[in-house]
């Protein structure tokens, strides 16, 4: 077993553990372990993970808090558990992606490597496109773009992605079929 595949197994075990454990103390310990493993990158990792889950977690937490208030139960334990778990899963994933070479971890299967290649090239294309949307807004703005304009630009980018990725998924399926992927 190569190093990357070992990391993949550890990562999958970590994900499983993080979903089975309910005690916030253990979740917190897991997060501490991930940060410890990240070493010098710990702060950057934590910051990236926090930013990535901010919008999603804020909405979920807020609506849960409202519901709890309505039903007159204490929301704290659930909120802490939920947020810690998502943060743990996200940091673990970021750490894994940074440390392991996914291509080598999956090289036991030709099919998986191929699918990963497709996903990777899509991600790269989208990252470039997202950059272009951001630059185009900057290029057309005489002042600092308003929040509304930035919101509109990212909504346009998102719907453009959606349309593109639907199209890309369609194309990929056709490419896979033409290469006999569904038969071996």
């Amino acid at each position: 077993m190569n190093r990357d595949r070992l990391l993949l197994c550890l990562y999958l075990a970590g994900i499983l553990a993080a979903t089975l454990v309910h005690d916030p103390v253990w979740l917190g310990a897991g997060l501490a372990l991930v940060l410890l493993l990240a070493g010098g990158d710990a702060l950057r990792l934590l910051r990236r993970a926090l930013l990535a889950i901010l919008a999603f977690n804020a909405i979920i937490s807020l609506s849960y808090a409202l519901m709890a208030w309505w039903q007159d139960i204490s929301p704290w334990l659930t909120l802490v558990r939920l947020n810690l778990r998502v943060l743990l899963l996200t940091s673990l994933t970021f750490l894994f992606i940074a440390r392991a070479n996914l291509f080598r971890a999956l090289d036991f299967s030709k099919g998986l490597t191929y699918v990963l290649g497709l996903a990777y090239s899509q991600a790269l294309t989208f990252r470039r496109a997202h950059e272009d949307f951001r630059l185009a807004l900057a290029s057309r703005s005489l002042r600092r773009p308003s929040l509304m304009d930035r919101y509109r630009a990212s909504a346009a980018a998102a719907s453009w992605y959606l349309e593109k990725s639907l199209h890309a998924a369609n194309q990929s399926a056709q490419a896979l079929r033409s290469r006999g992927f569904f038969h071996d």
Binding site: A129, D132, F133, L135, A136, L137, S139, R140, S141, L142, D149, R152, A153, A155, A156, A157, W160
Partner: peptide, 17 residues
């Protein structure tokens, strides 16, 4: 920004209104 304008290669990037 008023005097220099760039037309992006991908026009989609510029359309958000």
């Amino acid at each position: 920004r008023r005097e220099v304008a760039l037309l992006f290669q991908n026009p989609d990037a510029m359309l958000f209104n």
